[in-house]
Every structure is written in structure tokens, then in C-alpha cells.
């Protein structure tokens, strides 16, 4: 889950290059050093934060799998996993 310029985006933590590997090199290290892109550390693929599209690296042109997110009345960020709401909650202010 990434928050950027007032928007929250959620993607499945799996790189489209090999399909079954997580993205970060360390827990929670999802962004590249500049903070501009989501990065897969395995082979350096960079993904647009707002679209999940790979803009550089082995899986160029492919997409991270996005997940629906919304902010509910209690001001919580809710992600829909496998069609079920609110499996992950986090305070949107944090």
C-alpha cells in the first residue's frame, strides 16, 4: 500500500517478472531510493505508483495487480482482498 499526494494505492506484493516473488529487499522497502517508483529489488523493475505499470526493468509494460482501496466513514483505509472488504485496516492519517 502506498500513499502519494493524497491518494492511497494498494497492489498485490508479487512481481510480474517471475510471478511468485515479493518485491522488496527488506520488509516494507517497496520504493526506489528516490521514492518515485515502486521497485522490485530482485532485478530492479520500477513501477509507476499510480498505475502499477512497469516502466523500466525486465517486466516493462506489465502491471502489478492492483486491489480496490477506499476510505470509510471512520477514516480508515480499507483494502478489498479476494472480493472481501476490510481485511486490512490502517488509520489513513498514519
Amino acid at each position: 500500500m502506498v500513499r502519494r499526494e493524497g491518494c492511497v494505492y494498494a497492489y498485490h506484493d508479487a512481481c510480474p517478472h517471475y510471478g511468485d516473488t515479493t518485491l522488496p529487499w527488506r520488509q516494507d522497502a517497496y520504493l526506489d531510493p528516490s521514492g518515485e517508483h515502486i521497485m522490485c529489488a530482485a532485478h530492479g523493475a520500477l513501477f509507476e505508483i499510480s498505475t502499477g505499470r512497469c516502466v523500466s526493468g525486465p517486466c516493462e509494460g506489465q502491471y502489478l495487480t492492483s486491489m480496490p482501496v477506499y476510505i470509510n466513514d471512520a477514516d480508515e483505509v480499507v483494502v478489498t482482498l479476494n472480493g472481501t472488504d476490510s481485511q486490512i485496516r490502517s488509520d489513513s492519517s498514519s
Binding site: W25, A41, H43, G44
Partner: peptide, 9 residues
Amino acid sequence: YFKSPMGCN
């Protein structure tokens, strides 16, 4: 294999 901040495993 471990992912690394060097952009390779």
C-alpha cells in the same frame, strides 16, 4: 537467494 538494494539478487 536474497533480494538486495543493488538491484539484483
